[in-house]
C-alpha cells in the first residue's frame, strides 16, 4: 500500500480504527464490572484534617500505588501511637488513623490486630476496636485471626476472662500476632487468677523481646506477680 499516492490505505485504517475503538469501548465497560466489583467507599475523615485525608487518597488512587501509600501511612499511625505526647487526649485520632490505613490497604492485617488491641485493651475504647475488627473481617473473610480476636474482645468486655484466654492463646500460637497481644494475654492470666501462667509468659517476654520498654514492663510485672505468689501460696498450689 502506498500511503503517499493513494487515499485507500487511510480508508482501511479509519475503518479498522473505528472497529477496534468500538471493541475496546465495549470491553472497557465490561472490565469495570470485575475490576471494581464494589463501589468505591471510604471512611469519613473523622478527627483527621480533611485536607490531609483527601490529598492522601488522591495520591493513592491516582498514582496507582494505593497499597504503597497504605504501607507508608501505616508507619505514620505507629509513630502517632508511639508518641507519648499524643497520650494527653488518649490518642483520640487513633481510630480514624486506623480506618484510613485500612481503606488504603484493606488486606494488611496488622492494621486491624494492632489497632483493635490498642483501642480496646489499652485505651478502653471497646466499641471502636470492635468496629475496626468487623471492618477487617468483612475485608478478609477467610482470616481466622481477626475472628478469634473479636471473640476474645467480646469476652473481655463482659469480664469473662476464663473464656477469653483460649481465644488469645490460639491467636498467638498461630503466629503473626502483635507483641502487644502477648502482653494482653499475660495480663488476662493475672486477672483470671492464673499467676503461674502469667509469670511464665512475662518471663518468656523478658527473655525474647528486643524492646527496652517491654523488658522494663516485664520485670515490673514479674516483681508484682512474685509478690502476689508469695502472699497467696495456696493460689500457686491450686494452679
Amino acid at each position: 500500500m502506498n500511503w503517499a499516492t493513494s487515499e485507500k490505505p487511510f480508508k482501511y485504517a479509519a475503518l479498522s480504527l473505528t472497529t477496534f475503538f468500538i471493541l475496546q469501548v465495549f470491553l472497557c465497560v465490561n472490565l469495570d464490572k470485575w475490576v471494581h466489583p464494589e463501589p468505591f467507599e471510604s471512611s469519613q475523615a473523622g478527627q483527621l484534617d480533611p485536607k490531609i485525608v483527601s490529598s492522601l487518597r488522591a495520591a493513592a488512587l491516582l498514582s496507582g500505588y494505593k497499597v504503597l501509600v497504605g504501607h507508608v501511612f501505616w508507619i505514620r499511625v505507629i509513630q502517632y501511637y508511639g508518641d507519648g505526647s499524643n497520650g494527653a487526649d488518649h490518642y483520640a485520632k487513633l481510630y480514624d488513623y486506623c480506618r484510613l490505613a485500612s481503606d488504603l490497604n484493606p488486606q494488611f492485617l496488622p492494621v486491624y490486630t494492632y489497632g483493635a488491641a490498642a483501642l480496646a485493651y489499652q485505651q478502653n475504647r471497646m466499641n471502636e476496636g470492635v468496629e475496626l475488627l468487623q471492618k477487617g473481617i468483612l475485608a478478609n473473610p477467610t482470616v481466622n485471626n481477626l475472628k478469634l480476636m473479636l471473640a476474645a474482645m467480646t469476652y473481655h468486655n463482659s469480664e469473662d476472662y476464663a473464656k477469653e484466654i483460649p481465644f488469645l492463646e490460639i491467636q498467638i500460637a498461630q503466629g503473626n500476632a502483635p507483641t502487644m497481644l502477648v502482653n494482653i494475654l499475660a495480663n488476662t492470666y493475672t486477672k483470671a487468677g492464673r499467676i503461674d501462667d502469667a509469670i511464665r509468659l512475662w518471663r518468656q517476654i523478658l527473655q525474647t523481646t528486643d524492646s527496652d520498654v517491654q523488658k522494663y514492663e516485664a520485670s515490673q510485672k514479674l516483681k508484682e506477680l512474685y509478690a502476689i505468689a508469695k502472699k497467696n501460696p495456696s493460689e500457686k498450689d491450686k494452679s
Binding site: Y65, L68, H71, I75, F108, L109, P110, Y114, P178
Partner: peptide, 23 residues
C-alpha cells in the same frame, strides 16, 4: 526499612513493594 518499622507481615510488605518497584 518498612518491614523494620512496621509490625508483622514482612513478606506481604516485600511482595507489595516489589510489585510497586517492578512497575
Amino acid at each position: 526499612l518498612l518491614s523494620i518499622l512496621s509490625f508483622g507481615e514482612v513478606q506481604k510488605i516485600f511482595m507489595d513493594l516489589g510489585l510497586v518497584g517492578m512497575e
